[in-house]
């Protein structure tokens, strides 16, 4: 049985959709002959040709804008940002054009904008960001952040088939570190549905992306201390799976919300608010947020390590909350 890495899962998902649906095409910087900075699109130029695997100028705004235009007339573009940090250059096209077409004049914009996000690889302030919060406040967009190879494949397929603009934030730290056997038959992971990664009774950690693994490591350590942790992987940030969030909060009555986006204004605040509004009476302790401090992502290893939530931080905070 072939074992598929997270990065290959993304590639397979796009590849299969391109084989199945002629409307699907790729555009981005160095996606053709080079196969993308991280090789997500490797081999696609040979397979699908230069009309469907398009090397663009360094013009993120034009990449997304052209994707929008093509999508308006029936195509299914998948736009790559070489690093997700550069999505800022396409901000206007995403938040003002793509996100508002359907609401204003009924025109669907089925585009996918994807790219490598996240830290842990000493990429410094401009190659490590988690930009989901910038877009979280924009109605009309969908945002997904897969953590497993299965989800990486299932969510890219769902994103391509979705009638609306989907931002697909893959985590570069997971690219080659995460692998699993994937089913050979076609599958999708529905957008807006969370997944329980670990069942537990005492405390819930609600998280997504690379932090899922930190949560699971912490849960293992806490199990040894007699604290039984449930880990909920949101998978989609927009829309949030409110049902799953409330269910785990009601089940364990103690909640930690964990993410790699910086603390203030991060998606975690919304998760906390939903629980506070709709499951307050079930809580047996304050909801705890764990996220990087409100700073850019620093470069030097000791600084980046201090910046990113570490397993021991989670364990310590969970112990306190469990004892509350």
């Amino acid at each position: 049985m072939p074992v598929t890495t997270y990065i290959d899962a993304i590639k397979e998902g796009i590849w299969e959709e391109m084989e199945k649906d002629e409307r699907v095409f790729i555009l981005g910087e160095d996606v053709g002959i080079y196969g993308g900075a991280f090789k997500v699109t490797k081999g696609m130029l040979d397979k699908f040709g230069p009309m469907r695997v398009i090397d663009t100028p360094i013009s993120e705004s034009a990449i997304v804008g052209a994707a929008i235009g093509a999508a308006l007339v029936g195509m299914r573009p998948v736009a790559e940002m070489q690093f997700i940090d550069f999505i800022s250059c396409a901000f206007d096209q995403i938040v003002n054009f793509a996100a508002k077409c359907r609401y204003r004049w009924g025109a669907g914009v089925p585009i996918v904008v994807r790219g490598p996000s996240g830290g842990g690889v000493h990429g410094g302030p401009f190659h490590s960001q988690n930009p989901e919060a910038y877009f979280f406040n924009v109605p009309g967009l969908k945002i997904v952040c897969p953590s497993t190879a299965y989800d990486a494949k299932g969510l890219i397929k769902a994103a391509i088939r979705d009638p609306d603009p989907v931002l697909y934030f893959e985590h570069k730290f997971l690219y080659r570190r995460i692998k699993e056997d994937l089913p050979t038959e076609d599958f999708v992971v529905p957008i807006g549905k969370a997944a329980i990664r670990r069942q537990g009774e005492d405390l819930s950690i609600i998280t997504y992306g690379a932090m899922v693994y930190k949560a699971l490591e912490a849960a293992e350590a806490l199990a040894g201390m007699g604290i039984d942790v449930e880990v909920l992987d949101l998978r989609s940030i927009l829309p949030l799976d409110e049902e799953a969030i409330l269910a785990t909060a009601k089940k364990t009555s103690k909640v930690i919300v964990l993410h790699e986006a910086t603390l203030t204004g991060g998606p975690g605040g919304e998760v906390v608010a939903r629980i506070a509004e709709k499951a307050f009476e079930y809580l047996d302790g304050p909801i705890v947020r764990i996220a990087p401090p409100d700073t850019p992502v620093p470069y030097s290893p000791p600084l980046e390590e201090a910046f990113l939530p570490q397993t021991m931080d989670i364990v310590e905070k969970a112990k306190k909350l469990a004892a509350y």
Partner: peptide, 16 residues
């Protein structure tokens, strides 16, 4: 090399 005596004290890289 991301050292403390670098001009950004390790906060940013290369010619930044």
């Amino acid at each position: 090399c991301a050292r403390a005596i670098g001009p950004t004290r390790g906060k940013d890289l290369n010619v930044h």
